[in-house]
Amino acid sequence: MNRIAMAALAALTAAAGLGPAQAGSEDVVVENAWARATIGTARPGAAYLTLRNAGDATLTLTGVAASAAARAEIHRSVTDEKGVSSMMPAGEIAVGPGTSVALEPGGLHVMLMGLRSPLDEGDGFELTLTFSDGGEVAVPVAVLGIAARGPGG
């Protein structure tokens, strides 16, 4: 009984995330979501997308989950003036009203850890973005080839 109620609640929450019921996160427009194919599951994958805030208040992305991975985090690759690149958790991402934040190769990206199965070209999976207002947005992600350089392949 309890389990059924929980499942129903989860389903409702998921449905609410997709619809315009939440304050704030309904103004998020997610575009060009893609990920690179991986070979096997031992190494982490990366997904990219553009977040556009069509509303009039700042939106903050606080968390991300992926159906394809045990764990997903927003990471940032940075390259310093000596040409040394490294990567670190990016924390929360604020998107100002009317602006966009791009998660793209060499910068912000969703790091996918503990892949449940290899990401094969042509497949897809779902990312769930959580915002500071508690709203969730489900994003379908297309898996492109391993040598893809952007959402167009």
Binding site: P44, A46, S77, G106, I146, R149
Partner: peptide, 15 residues
């Protein structure tokens, strides 16, 4: 094990 910068460079070099 580099998910972002290295595959991107490999893809650029392949291009």
């Amino acid at each position: 094990n580099c998910p972002d910068v290295c595959p991107t460079t490999l893809a650029e070099v392949a291009a």
